[in-house]
Structures are given as C-alpha cells and as structure tokens.
Write a protein that binds this DNA or RNA. Structure first.
Lengths: 143, 143
DNA sequence: ACCAAATAGTTGATTTTGTCAACTATTTTA
DNA sequence: TAAAATAGTTGACAAAATCAACTATTTGGT
C-alpha cells in the first residue's frame, strides 16, 4: 500500500516540479532573479519583519540573504530600521518603490498562472483549487 | 473569481515549493547533486534514451547535461553507444552500478516521502494521493 | 548527387547562485 | 559580570547554470 502511495507522490512531485519550473520562467525574465523574487514576495507578505524571519521561511543562507537585502536597499526597494529593544535586529519593510516592483512581479506571475488555468472551464478551475486546498490541509503539519 | 483562483494557486505553489525543498534535502546529502539525481531518475525511467530526450523532459541546458553524463560515464553509472542509423545520437542506459545507485537514491527519497506521510492515517494518505492524481489530470495539457 | 540547413552532442568561458567560516556588535543567561 | 547565544555582514570559495563556438553527422531541397 505505502509503496504505491510513495510512487504516486513521487510522480506528483515530478509533475509539479515541472509546473513550477514553467511558472518560474516568467519571473526569470523580470528584473529579479528567482531567489530575489521569493524574498520580495515574503517581504510583501511578512513586512515588517527581520532578516531572520525570512531566513526561516525560505530556508536560505543568512549571508546570501544579507546580500540580497543589501541590493534591495541600494535599489531603494526596502527601508530598514534598528529595533529599539534589540538593536541587533533590523526591521525591514518595503518602500513605496518596493511595493510597486512587487506588484509588477505579482502581475507577471498572475499571468503565468492564468495561462496555466486558461484551458480549464470555471468548474474545473474550482476543482483544481479545492484539490490544492485539500492537499495543503492534509500535509500541513509539516511546517 | 479568477483573482482568488490565482491567489489560491500561488499559495499552493508556495506551500509545495517548501515541501519539495524538504524532500530534496535528503538527496542533497547523498552522493548526488539535485540535478544529477534528477538526471539519474529520468535515465532510470526512460532508458534507453538519448541526451536530447532528457534535455526535453528536464528542460536543462545541453552543455550542462553533457557534463553530467560525462561524469556519470566516468563513474561507470551509464553505458553509451552510438545509434546505428544516426551516429550523432548516443543511446544511453544505466549500467548495473548505475541501477544500484539509483536504487539507493530512490530508497532515500522514499524514506523522505514516507516521513511526510507518516502522520497521516491510511485513509488520509489515500485522500492525498487522489487529490494529487486529480490535479495532474486536470492540468495535464501543460506538458 | 550536392550543398545548405538542421541536429546531437562537446567544450571553454563566464555568470549566477549558494555555501562556509570568520567577524562585529549586541543581548541573554547563569 | 563573564560566557554563551544571536542578528547580521563580509570575504573567500564552490557549485550550478548559461552561452556561444565548435565538430560531426544527417536531412532536405533543387
């Protein structure tokens, strides 16, 4: 039983890895690299937040992130401010420009997803989404 | 309607990217890099096959793949043979050693998946899998 | 049959991405 | 109050990926 279950999950992983690859292509010819895009996305969703929080969510190296954020700061996409109660921590938030860039990226990625869903009828789209929600709920223990 | 659909897909992508990242960790402390592991996996499933076929499935650069295969050959994991009717093409297949290595890797990855499913009851596992199959079927146009 | 275009794969050069360890500056703990 | 822990930075490096030029074939059109 579990053997076939594992094979099925593996097949899905293979399949969905491909889908994610397709969707990422759009991002790759934006102004951002994939890791930058992911950081921007998390900033948008978590801000204000510390570098550490991003590191935890994205499981990314802290040195690596530090450089990405330095770059974002240079481009004026984020603002940083030391936290009063613990000056080791810097609170990061998107600047107005950062928000604009995020929105651009987000629209591009929305287009990609739309193309993915385009061949489906509305009811099939609903169906896909409910399957996705179900999977999320079932596997959700895993951080 | 589609707006929320897109947001839902995005959430799932985020979620499943994380899952895939977790599962990949196991592979990363094997003898293979992630791309090598993917090539090995495709070889196992498609052999005998040409480099081109792998390139198409994995959407990987041909120069990059060429090096990976060269490396596999050096390690004795694959055997190659020019195709009679078109000597530009080399038919690749796993050697006995290659099959053994694949099996090792495959077991490691199976363990990871098993851990993912471990907290679930059998009926929930069935449920996850049927949702996965449904998604695959619905999105399958997108090779 | 012959030449141009296409194709499979290789190689070298380079860029991008990611890792690791050492370091500074704080804060926490015991 | 000294030692350990934590947030983040930086430099050195390694791994992953891309790009273009190249060889050797095969195909297609005339």
């Amino acid at each position: 039983m579990t053997t076939t279950a594992i094979a099925q999950v593996r097949e899905f992983n293979r399949f969905y890895t491909r889908i994610l690859g397709l969707l990422d292509k759009e991002i790759l010819n934006s102004a951002f690299s994939l890791p930058e895009a992911r950081v921007l996305y998390e900033l948008h969703r978590m801000q204000p937040c510390s570098a550490k929080e991003i590191i935890q969510v994205l499981e990314i190296d802290k040195g690596y992130l530090s450089r990405i954020l330095k770059n974002f700061l240079r481009k004026g996409l984020i603002q940083t401010q030391a936290v009063r109660t613990d000056t080791r921590v810097t609170e990061i938030r998107l600047s107005a420009k950062g928000k604009v860039e995020f929105e651009k990226l987000n629209r591009a990625s929305a287009n990609q997803i739309q193309q993915l869903l385009a061949p489906l009828t509305d009811s099939k789209i609903k169906s896909v989404i409910s399957h996705m929600q179900a999977i999320r709920q079932l596997l959700n223990n895993h951080t």
